[in-house]
Design a protein around this nucleic acid. Structure first.
Lengths: 158, 158
DNA sequence: ATTGTATTGTTCGTCTTCGTACTATTTATT
DNA sequence: AATAAATAGTACGAAGACGAACAATACAAT
């Protein structure tokens, strides 16, 4: 039915490749993300937990004072998951939660001055990582890639 | 410095968008993957834990009898993480571990007949999911997308 | 042959995320 | 105004993945 690589002595150094499944958007999306995330975290050891949540911090920087559930939606996490994350980032004085006058249930999120600085520095390193990751893909195609990913995100949100 | 949406009454239903960061491959890769994974799992409630590990099962189906560390590499997980996963899939009789004559340390992984059937069925549903996810992207671009993701994966592996 | 090094699979403790339930507040309905 | 329904944030227990350490086996170097 399928090849059985273990029967003969054709052991390669190469990574296993799957069937049709392996050539799907879903499969490669996942694998690429796992590798990218790990790769980025391995290279950045300072700044505490901030690197791991750089995406969130970017959103907060661009949209200061937003309530937590909106932030959770933006990055695709549960609001309950965000609590612990924000607790830690607040303890490290990257950001802070403050009351919002409009809604006494909500607590808006702002970056601290230190947080802004950290984000700026990490963004530069993220750009390096981006470059390494997409090396060999022409700029034009990269833009198209980003566009298509945005398209997929929109499809999945509706 | 930045807009402060909370000051005026321009509350939209729309999701927050970040700064330059938001338009990066890394950011969208992660967000798209999170949404895709959740979306897929929400829609498929039967077949136990198999749907979550369909990627792995596809690899096993295409490469029967491979040792566990090769499988871990292929899907970007730690070999220690794979142990629990395989335990569960084995308990559900989707796959089985058997000794390999060539190396007495290793235990190769095979799909059971039932596992093969489950994979076939899930693959069809994954194709549906794929279609929903990529709706609106022409087939030609989709291929290019898959190709670029593969390129990124290769870059991250080296 | 023997000794040292690398590899395979596993266990174990830790960290992260999730899902559910709960409180406080806001919004909608009567 | 009074009551019902929805929403924001949080706490807590469960599940998943990680990293480090370990035993068994394989490979390499002398």
């Amino acid at each position: 039915m399928h090849d059985d690589n273990s029967s003969s002595k054709n052991e390669q150094e190469s990574v296993l490749r799957g069937g049709e499944m392996e050539a799907s958007v879903g499969y490669r999306l996942r694998l690429a993300q796992i590798l990218a995330y790990r790769n980025f975290e391995e290279k950045i050891t300072d700044h505490g937990v901030a690197p791991r949540y750089l995406g969130l911090l970017g959103i907060v920087s661009a949209n200061p004072g937003q309530p937590q559930n909106k932030l959770a939606d933006a990055i695709g996490l549960q609001k309950s998951s965000l609590v612990t994350i924000l607790d830690r980032l607040e303890k490290e004085e990257i950001l802070e939660r403050r009351a919002i006058p409009q809604d006494r249930r909500a607590r808006g999120v702002w970056l601290t001055p230190r947080g802004e600085k950290v984000v700026t520095e990490l963004a530069a390193r993220a750009a390096d990582h981006e470059e390494r990751m997409a090396k060999g893909i022409p700029a034009e195609d990269r833009e198209r890639l980003i566009e298509m990913l945005g398209h997929i995100i929109d499809n999945l949100r509706s």
